[in-house]
Design a protein around this nucleic acid. Structure first.
Length: 259
DNA sequence: ATGTCTCAGGGACTGAGA
């Protein structure tokens, strides 16, 4: 089973490219972030025609998340329990039957804007609440996969110029500590289960022409509970969509799981 | 490199957010 995550930066703009990518790469589960669509505008019909069932939680202009699955998703949940938030940033769904079922969480972690800003404080509060929720979910369902745009580059090797980014947003010590505390729950960073090329990134700033210059960060991640991690065969970043016309600023990441 | 892309409001362009 192949599970993927992609921050599409507007599902309206990226829908044709996403449909082409689904037909070409045939993932079984896809977590989307920054759909930027209100719920009544979600293109469920187009995805169903492509062979996917959907769960979504969106809003106007910003944020918005969705999960596409081959089989019908169940036990849907939106938002972090006990953390009231207007911003649509998380959705969870279960797929499969019996002992083979897995719990999928799709997350769009706040960007944080700048270290020390109000949005940064919100990001850290959000991540602390997120950790508490994942701890509960792991107790109920160890077969947990948490995919999304974490807006955190976990280590210097995930940054094209670590010195330039030192203590900057996406790289600051408190953000990295929050990410490490997720791994402390027993979750594994699927990408780092394998030998990877140096300079492997998932996001490049539009403004600096970052992709062509190799100026990227690895901020999109697939975290797996230990059981799923031990059955993970591969995890790769797909650069092809980032080379397309009108690309998202993010590339998709995909993991191949046993069963 | 205050660089680009996206959306909303309003009906050309500006401001938000990333």
């Amino acid at each position: 089973m192949r599970i993927a995550s992609w921050n599409v930066n507007s599902l309206k703009v990226r829908l044709p490219q996403l449909l082409g990518w689904l037909a070409s790469k045939k993932p079984d589960v896809v977590c989307l972030q920054e759909t930027k669509l209100e719920d009544d505008k979600f293109p469920a019909m187009e995805f169903e025609a492509a062979g996917y069932r959907c769960a979504w939680s969106g809003q106007k202009t910003y944020n918005g998340v969705a999960i596409l699955t081959r089989d019908a998703p169940f036990a849907l949940a939106t938002g972090i329990p006990g953390f009231p938030d207007e911003q649509r940033r998380v959705i969870a769904a279960s797929i499969g039957t019996g002992v083979d079922s897995i719990r999928v969480i799709c997350a769009y972690v706040p960007n944080g804007q700048a270290v020390g800003s109000e949005k940064y404080e919100y990001k850290l509060r959000w991540l602390a609440a997120f950790r508490g929720w994942l701890e509960q979910e792991l107790r109920q369902t160890p077969r947990l996969a948490v995919l999304g745009d974490y807006n955190v580059a976990p280590a210097d090797q995930d940054v094209h110029d670590p010195e330039a980014w030192r203590d900057k947003i996406l790289c600051s010590a408190p953000e990295r500590e929050a990410f490490r505390s997720l791994l402390g729950l027993g979750l594994k960073d699927a990408f780092r289960l394998f030998t990877q090329e140096p300079g492997s990134f998932t996001w490049w700033d539009y403004r600096t022409n970052g992709f062509k210059r190799g100026l990227g960060l690895r901020i999109d991640h697939i975290l797996l509970g230990s059981e799923l991690a031990s059955g993970c065969r591969a995890c790769d970043i797909d650069l092809e969509p980032r080379r397309a016309e009108r690309p998202s600023d993010h590339a998709p990441i995909m993991a191949d799981l046993e069963a």
